[in-house]
C-alpha cells in the first residue's frame, strides 16, 4: 500500500489510522475539484472559451470535463461575452435557476464592465444584474487568463464556509440584486 497524502493545503491532524479535518475543508476540496461549469458564451470571448475547452488548454484537467448546459445542474456560471440589455433578464433567469452553492466567473471586458461598448444597448457589466465572484480582464482574455480566473474560483470554493450561503449577509447581498435566496 502506498502512502496516501492529502492536499497540502488541507489542514489535517494525522495519526495512525485516522485523519482529522474540518468538514468545511473536506467539502470545499471536493467541490472545487468537481465544478460543473455552465458556459454562457455570447460572443468573441466565447470563441476563446472554446479554445480553453479545446485540446491545447484542456479545461478537463481541472475537473471540468463536463459542460453543464442546464443551469439546474451547474455550480459555476461562466459569462463570456457581451450581455445586452435585451439579454440581461435571460442571464438573471439562468442565474436564479442554478442551485446553491453557485459561483459566477465574468470573462472579458464586456461582461465585466461593458468594455468598449458604452452604448444604448449594452449592459455596463453583468454585476448590474447578478453578483460576480471573479472578473477576468481582456478583450478577449487569452485562455491562460481564463484558466487563471478559474483557479481563483477554485481558491474561493475551497475556502468557503459551509454556513456562508445561509447567512443573512449573503441573503442581503442577493437582495440588492432582487434575487431570492433558495437556501433553506
Amino acid at each position: 500500500m502506498g502512502k496516501v497524502t492529502l492536499d497540502a493545503k488541507l489542514e489535517t491532524i494525522n495519526g495512525q489510522g485516522f485523519q482529522l479535518t474540518s468538514i468545511d475543508k473536506a467539502i470545499g476540496l471536493a467541490r472545487a475539484n468537481s465544478l460543473w461549469p455552465l458556459p454562457f458564451a455570447t460572443s468573441c470571448c466565447g470563441i476563446e472559451f472554446m479554445a480553453t475547452m479545446g485540446s491545447n488548454y484542456d479545461l478537463a484537467r481541472f475537473g471540468m470535463e463536463r459542460m453543464s448546459f442546464s443551469p439546474r445542474q451547474a455550480d459555476l456560471l461562466i459569462v463570456a461575452g457581451t450581455i445586452s440589455k435585451k439579454l440581461g433578464p435571460v442571464l438573471k433567469k439562468v442565474y436564479e435557476q442554478m442551485a446553491e452553492p453557485k459561483w459566477v466567473l465574468s470573462v472579458g471586458a464586456c461582461a465585466s464592465s461593458g468594455g468598449i461598448f458604452d452604448t444604448y444597448s449594452v449592459l455596463q457589466g453583468i454585476d448590474r444584474v447578478i453578483p460576480v465572484d471573479v472578473y477576468v480582464p481582456g478583450c478577449p482574455p487569452r485562455p491562460e487568463q481564463i484558466i487563471d480566473g478559474i483557479m481563483k474560483i477554485h481558491e474561493m470554493v475551497k475556502n468557503e464556509s459551509l454556513r456562508r450561503r445561509n447567512s443573512s449577509e449573503y441573503k442581503d447581498m442577493l437582495g440588492t440584486f432582487n434575487i431570492e435566496s433558495d437556501g433553506e
Binding site: 439579454l87 435571460v90 461598448f117
Partner: peptide, 11 residues
Amino acid sequence: VGYIHRAFEKI
C-alpha cells in the same frame, strides 16, 4: 435576434 446588439454603426 438582437440579443447581443452592440450598436456598431452608432459607435
